Deep mutational scan, measured.
Amino acid sequence: MSGIALSRLAQERKAWRKDHPFGFVAVPTKNPDGTMNLMNWECAIPGKKGTPWEGGLFKLRMLFKDDYPSSPPKCKFEPPLFHPNVYPSGTVCLSILEEDKDWRPAITIKQILLGIQELLNEPNIQDPAQAEAYTIYCQNRVEYEKRVRAQAKKFAPS
């Protein structure tokens, strides 16, 4: 494992614990031996107030490669969400998460999670990743928002 990646992720964890947006979660997972795995984080993004996503808490896994922060983490909703920019596998399609697009090593975990929260309610229809959600979003916004509200209710924190 890269010392650069681990040191950056340790800084990220410290900064997150000191200050993070209300309702968001970002925690490194534990290895079988109980030690912390900084390369694999369990996160959760709350649906934004005043949107059909409100009330939901959407679980996301963030996986970092050894060359982080040169390369972005892979962000994957578990379980996958109904959304035009979420692949059926759950992987998020967002330009700041793509090395050859808008990724920059200075982007923080907090910025990534806030960017994904923004994307939930403002899909990028130029870059669809899920045919069904994309089609319904474009053709029947009322039905799309109904499905999103049902999903938010399903993923409401207990």
Rank of each mutant, 00 (worst) to 15 (best):
M1S: 06
M1H: 06
S2F: 14
G3M: 15
I4W: 08
I4E: 12
A5F: 10
A5D: 05
A5R: 04
A5T: 09
L6V: 11
S7R: 08
R8F: 09
R8A: 10
R8M: 11
L9P: 01
A10H: 05
A10Y: 01
A10G: 08
Q11V: 13
E12F: 02
E12V: 03
E12Y: 02
E12S: 04
R13G: 00
R13E: 03
R13T: 00
K14G: 03
K14Q: 04
W16Y: 05
W16K: 05
K18Y: 03
K18G: 07
D19S: 04
D19K: 06
H20Q: 00
H20I: 05
H20E: 02
P21M: 06
P21Q: 00
F22Y: 10
G23K: 08
G23W: 07
G23Y: 09
G23V: 00
F24H: 05
V25D: 10
V25K: 09
A26W: 08
A26I: 07
A26T: 00
A26K: 05
V27W: 06
V27R: 13
P28M: 05
P28E: 02
T29H: 12
T29L: 15
T29P: 04
K30F: 07
K30S: 11
K30Y: 07
N31G: 06
D33L: 04
G34Q: 13
G34W: 07
G34P: 00
G34K: 07
T35R: 02
T35D: 02
N37V: 13
N37A: 15
L38C: 07
L38Y: 13
L38A: 07
M39L: 10
M39Q: 03
M39N: 10
M39F: 13
N40D: 14
N40A: 15
W41S: 03
W41T: 01
W41K: 05
W41D: 00
W41G: 01
W41I: 04
W41V: 05
E42I: 03
E42G: 11
C43D: 07
C43T: 15
C43L: 04
C43H: 01
A44N: 08
A44P: 01
I45Y: 06
I45F: 07
P46R: 07
P46G: 07
P46D: 05
G47T: 05
G47Y: 10
G47S: 01
G47C: 12
K48Q: 09
K48E: 08
K48P: 15
K48I: 07
K49I: 10
K49F: 13
K49R: 14
K49E: 14
G50T: 05
G50N: 15
T51M: 02
T51Y: 04
T51G: 06
T51L: 01
P52R: 09
P52V: 08
P52I: 11
W53T: 01
W53A: 01
W53S: 00
G55F: 15
G55Q: 11
G55S: 10
G55R: 06
G56N: 02
L57R: 12
F58D: 06
F58S: 02
L60D: 02
L60T: 09
L60V: 09
L60Q: 04
R61S: 12
R61D: 11
M62P: 04
M62N: 02
L63C: 06
L63I: 12
L63R: 13
F64G: 03
F64N: 06
K65P: 11
K65H: 12
K65G: 11
K65Y: 09
D66T: 13
D67I: 05
D67H: 15
D67Y: 06
Y68C: 05
Y68G: 02
P69T: 00
P69M: 01
P69C: 03
S70V: 09
S70Q: 07
S70C: 13
S70F: 09
S70M: 10
S71K: 12
S71I: 08
S71M: 06
S71V: 05
S71P: 06
P72K: 04
P72H: 05
P72T: 05
K74D: 15
K74Q: 14
K74Y: 15
K74F: 15
K74W: 04
C75M: 11
C75Q: 02
K76S: 15
K76E: 15
F77R: 02
F77D: 00
E78M: 14
P80E: 11
P80M: 13
L81F: 07
L81Q: 01
L81D: 01
L81N: 00
L81W: 02
F82Q: 02
F82K: 00
F82C: 04
H83S: 02
P84W: 03
P84L: 15
N85R: 03
N85P: 02
N85F: 09
V86W: 03
V86S: 10
V86C: 09
V86Q: 06
V86G: 01
V86D: 02
Y87C: 02
P88Q: 15
S89N: 07
G90P: 06
G90A: 05
T91W: 14
T91H: 15
T91C: 15
T91Q: 13
V92D: 06
C93D: 06
C93R: 02
C93K: 02
C93I: 00
C93M: 05
C93G: 02
L94K: 00
S95C: 06
S95R: 01
I96D: 11
I96V: 14
I96E: 00
L97T: 15
L97S: 09
E98L: 10
E98N: 15
E99M: 11
E99G: 14
D100R: 08
K101D: 14
D102R: 02
D102I: 06
W103G: 03
W103L: 02
R104Y: 01
P105T: 06
P105M: 09
P105W: 03
A106H: 01
A106M: 00
I107H: 11
I107L: 14
T108D: 10
T108P: 11
T108W: 14
I109M: 12
I109Q: 05
K110Q: 08
Q111M: 13
Q111W: 14
Q111A: 14
I112A: 09
I112Y: 01
L113K: 03
L114W: 13
L114T: 13
L114V: 15
L114E: 11
L114K: 11
L114A: 13
L114F: 12
L114N: 12
G115E: 04
G115Q: 02
G115V: 00
G115L: 00
I116R: 05
Q117W: 08
E118Y: 11
E118L: 11
E118T: 09
L119N: 04
N121G: 08
N121P: 06
N121T: 12
E122N: 13
P123G: 00
P123S: 02
N124G: 06
I125F: 10
I125K: 04
Q126N: 11
Q126I: 12
Q126C: 13
D127E: 11
D127M: 01
D127Q: 00
D127R: 02
D127A: 05
D127P: 00
P128D: 04
P128Y: 02
P128K: 00
P128S: 13
A129P: 03
A129T: 02
Q130G: 00
Q130P: 00
Q130C: 08
E132D: 14
E132P: 07
E132N: 08
A133H: 04
A133R: 04
A133L: 07
A133N: 01
Y134I: 07
Y134A: 10
Y134F: 08
T135F: 11
I136C: 09
I136P: 01
I136F: 13
I136Y: 11
Y137K: 06
Y137P: 00
Y137H: 04
Q139D: 13
Q139R: 13
Q139E: 13
N140C: 04
N140E: 12
R141C: 11
V142K: 15
E143F: 07
E143R: 06
Y144R: 02
Y144K: 02
Y144V: 01
Y144W: 06
Y144C: 00
E145C: 08
E145G: 05
E145Y: 12
E145R: 14
K146F: 08
K146I: 11
K146S: 15
R147K: 13
V148D: 00
R149V: 09
R149N: 09
A150E: 10
A150L: 13
A150V: 11
A150C: 10
Q151L: 07
Q151H: 04
A152K: 02
A152F: 07
A152D: 00
A152C: 03
K153S: 10
K153M: 13
K153C: 09
K154V: 14
K154H: 09
K154Q: 13
K154M: 09
K154L: 12
K154T: 11
F155Y: 12
F155P: 02
F155M: 05
A156Q: 12
P157Q: 13
P157K: 15
P157D: 10
P157S: 12
